[in-house]
Amino acid sequence: TGEEYIAVGDSTAQQVGDLTFKKGEILLVIEKKPDGWWIAKDAKGNEGLVPRTYLEPYS
């Protein structure tokens, strides 16, 4: 379980453990880390770190 967020920009994984996503994708945020990198899952079930500045709450 988690909260749904929509990507407001494209982000390409810079290192192992990062999640690549495109603008408009809905991501499920699993954990919000205080350093600004959140753990999220995409629609295909891929999981990784995403920069919170690229996400907005999805409603």
Rank of each mutant, 00 (worst) to 15 (best):
T1C: 13
E3R: 09
E3Q: 11
E3C: 11
E4A: 13
Y5P: 00
Y5H: 05
Y5E: 00
Y5K: 01
I6Y: 06
I6F: 05
I6W: 05
A7R: 00
A7Q: 01
A7I: 03
A7H: 01
V8S: 06
V8W: 05
V8N: 09
V8Y: 04
G9I: 15
D10P: 06
D10V: 03
D10C: 06
D10F: 05
D10H: 06
S11M: 14
S11K: 14
S11E: 03
T12K: 12
T12S: 10
T12Y: 13
A13G: 14
A13P: 10
A13D: 10
A13L: 07
A13C: 11
A13T: 11
Q14I: 13
Q14L: 14
Q14H: 12
Q15N: 14
Q15D: 10
Q15C: 14
Q15T: 11
Q15L: 10
V16Y: 10
G17Y: 06
D18A: 15
D18V: 15
L19F: 05
L19P: 02
T20V: 12
T20P: 10
T20D: 08
F21A: 01
K22I: 07
K22E: 05
K22M: 08
K23A: 09
K23Q: 07
K23E: 06
K23L: 06
G24F: 04
E25C: 06
E25I: 03
E25Y: 04
I26F: 05
I26N: 02
I26H: 05
L28S: 06
L28A: 04
L28E: 05
V29L: 04
V29W: 00
V29P: 00
I30T: 07
E31H: 12
E31I: 10
E31V: 12
K32L: 03
P34V: 09
P34W: 08
D35P: 01
D35G: 13
G36M: 04
W37M: 14
W37D: 06
W37N: 11
W38V: 05
W38H: 02
W38N: 00
W38R: 00
W38G: 02
I39G: 02
I39T: 07
I39N: 04
A40K: 01
K41N: 04
K41S: 06
K41G: 02
D42L: 03
A43I: 09
A43L: 10
A43G: 10
A43C: 09
K44Q: 13
K44Y: 14
K44N: 13
K44F: 14
K44L: 12
N46F: 07
N46K: 07
N46H: 08
N46M: 07
E47N: 05
E47Q: 13
G48M: 03
V50W: 02
V50M: 02
V50Q: 00
P51L: 14
P51Q: 14
P51D: 15
R52M: 15
R52S: 15
Y54H: 13
E56F: 08
E56L: 11
E56P: 01
P57S: 07
P57F: 07
P57T: 05
P57K: 11
Y58I: 10
Y58Q: 06
S59Q: 12
S59M: 12
S59Y: 13
